[in-house]
Design a protein around this nucleic acid. Structure first.
Lengths: 165, 165
DNA sequence: ACTATTAGTTAGCTAAGGTAACTATCAACT
DNA sequence: AGTTGATAGTTACCTTAGCTAACTAATAGT
């Protein structure tokens, strides 16, 4: 995506106001999209440096903090299809970061929990990853950082699909 | 892949003494990361529906709005390595969405410009893609939307690596 | 017992990303 | 000149992530 400055501001869909759509909503959505792409690309490099690709780290994070989870729950949490989560877990398991356990009551379901090592790796990676952002965040003014902090819950709701799906 | 845990533990990016690192900065960075992952996963589905994967759409966008660009400029703008941008452009070219032109003065450099069809596809895709977000944004209160809009420039700076890289 | 449903897995594909090694061109200097 | 070095892209090859479709295994319901 182009830097905002090179892009036309709010290319309002033509037509005589047929929508209670706020001016700027489209522009807002577009820039959100763009920012997410670029942010993720940046962060992936740090994730790589920490030894785990971003999606694996993300899944591990859910497992560490969310306690033992079934694969289906994980897939839903991560918003991916079952085969995708299945492969992610295989990768994590091969590295000794998570453990599978077949549910005693229903032997179709597999529960996944983090190993101590998985927990440690997550925390290390987290620190490293975040350290890379700290300098960026540090370059912000206190006001800007506060702004970001306040907007983040909203962003999280959007990211998880609130309202739209 | 050598698991992170077998490597020497990184010293904490330690803060308390030498850094005015706010409490919460770590949490902020981590949640930003997570939100970006989830947002992008959501948006990719819309991108797919529009006929072009997200990175192609992103590159096309830069080309359409940024005028003719060299591949190197593009790679820098998209924050990817040359081979990656090269493949993206091949894909776009095969679909007739962009054109390559060898620079007259320096025949090593390749300039890429959007075809009319590329421009049209971009605009169509953009509207479709963004429409999915608009309903989510519409579910927000005006206050929340305003919050997001004000935080977005900050987010964009972070996403582009301001301050840190 | 048979059927339908549910949880995961396997197979096979596409796309994106990387590094390493290559070609081609240009610039510079002997 | 011609060689040397730097620069712009490309090619080859690998990994990861994501999908659908088709499969196995277990459970639930008649």
């Amino acid at each position: 995506m182009p830097p905002a400055s090179t892009r036309p501001r709010t290319p309002r869909p033509r037509g005589p106001r047929r929508e209670p759509q706020r001016p700027g909503t489209l522009d807002l959505a577009d820039r959100l999209h763009s920012a997410a792409i670029h942010l993720l690309r940046r962060l992936r490099r740090e994730d790589d440096a920490s030894g785990l690709p971003a999606p694996q780290l993300s899944a591990l994070s859910v497992i560490v903090f969310g306690g033992p989870l079934t694969l289906g729950e994980l897939a839903r949490a991560e918003q991916v299809r079952p085969p995708t989560i299945s492969k992610l877990i295989v990768a994590l398991e091969q590295q000794g970061l998570v453990q599978r356990e077949v549910d005693a009551g229903d032997r179709r379901v597999v529960r996944v929990r983090a190993t101590p090592r998985g927990t440690k790796v997550l925390q290390d990676g987290r620190q490293r990853r975040v350290a890379a952002l700290v300098s960026s965040l540090g370059a912000l003014s206190a006001r800007e950082r506060a702004l970001l902090a306040r907007a983040l819950p909203v962003l999280e709701r959007i990211a998880r699909g609130a309202g739209g799906d």
